[in-house]
Design a protein around this nucleic acid. Structure first.
Lengths: 213, 213
DNA sequence: TAGATTGTTAATCGATTAACAATC
DNA sequence: TAGATTGTTAATCGATTAACAATC
């Protein structure tokens, strides 16, 4: 076994790590230096063994009887998720949602940096939204190539998503954060993370229908 | 077995149903009247048996050798998800994201109707955003009670989420669509659907780190 | 008819949860 | 020390995938 081998961690684990990070940051702010999995689990309504396994996957080790050092966990989780290195991104689609994401200060916390936005509406091109300029979509390839941008955020209309994704991939984008409702067809080395509001709403509506049909 | 018993369908199935609905709507628009699970599966990159099981959970039946009627599936899925009845919602937090959701025309498709927004910033109160008025948060309980609103959308800052959620639940809200990063502590009869951008970003960043460490 | 397709049961896979020795 | 906690292995649970009879 190569020690430097990249551990491919299960998706459910990855999805829980930010919640641990947030809770731990709040605990550190209150002066807490040490914490047990039992404690984290009860705060977040999870199983303690699951928390222990999740934390183990980041490589941080705890001490029997004592627990984990809060600081170790915070840096360990952030390192593991790549949140200690800046990630540059470009955004396509300067509509309501695109603008909301461009203005979201919370991304600084994860060191995600949206460099610029692109749109095909002449009305929007040239404007600056939250300090970030909106360019014509034709200028996307050049900027992505020059700055080696690896993340593309898609907030275009669903019908345009596949073609804009293709342009992004062609330009060197290696990961797409897809906020549209399109199922994207991409080469297997390209990562797609889909934030699907209709999927989320489907769960909400159905659960509501189940309790009061 | 009570025929009218509410079928509790697994969450992964619910999350896939909107993608089927979208694909089927596009097929109907192109004049297609009949479709097989094999076809749906290949279009969406899924397993045909999985599609068949998912569709079965909505109660729609197909015909061996023929397939499913596109119209039957469209109405069956929409009925099953409660998308043929209007659902009223209120939104708390008229920031960037809240405004984006208020202006999102796509919700009409799911018959989700955001009646009004609430905020505690005097600057925002009284304004109308995309034809919907912003009221002081104090006015939320009265409106929710009078109109029997069942869905509450949370786009407030994370620190405010738990207390605003409590007010909503107190007022009669039965389902929360949580766009904040808070883990909400709610009574067991209240539904929480969490759209967690940090969880999504964690998957994206880590997968990117795995391919180029 | 023959073969594609449905509906359903069985097998597999992966994630969660339980059990427990090691430890401070 | 005794008991709480970690780290890890085993058992369970649930979702996906495979197999196959029924059907048009």
């Amino acid at each position: 076994m190569d020690e430097r081998a990249i551990r491919v961690v299960a998706e459910p684990t990855l999805r829980r790590l930010p919640a641990y990070h947030r809770l731990l940051a709040a605990m550190r702010a209150r002066g807490r230096t040490v914490v047990s999995c039992t404690r984290i689990a009860s705060e977040l309504g999870l199983d303690a063994t699951q928390v222990r396994k999740d934390l183990a996957s980041t490589g941080v080790v705890g001490r029997p009887k004592i627990g984990f050092a809060v600081d170790d966990l915070l840096t360990g989780i952030a390192d593991f998720l790549g949140w200690n290195n800046r990630s540059d991104a470009v955004l396509a689609g300067a509509g309501h949602l695109g603008m909301a994401l461009m203005g979201y200060r919370g991304f600084e916390h994860y060191r995600l940096n949206i460099l610029a936005a692109f749109d095909c509406d002449p009305e929007k091109i040239g404007r600056a939204i939250h300090g970030k300029e909106v360019f014509a979509v034709e200028k996307l390839p050049d900027l992505v190539q020059r700055l080696h941008v690896s993340i593309g955020i898609l907030t275009v209309p669903t019908q345009a998503a596949q073609s804009v994704a293709a342009v992004m991939i062609q330009s060197g984008i290696r990961a797409l954060w897809n906020f549209t409702q399109a199922h994207l067809d991409v080469p297997e080395n390209v990562i797609v993370e889909h934030v699907d509001l209709s999927a989320s709403l489907a769960v909400l509506s159905r659960r509501l229908a189940e309790v009061s049909p």
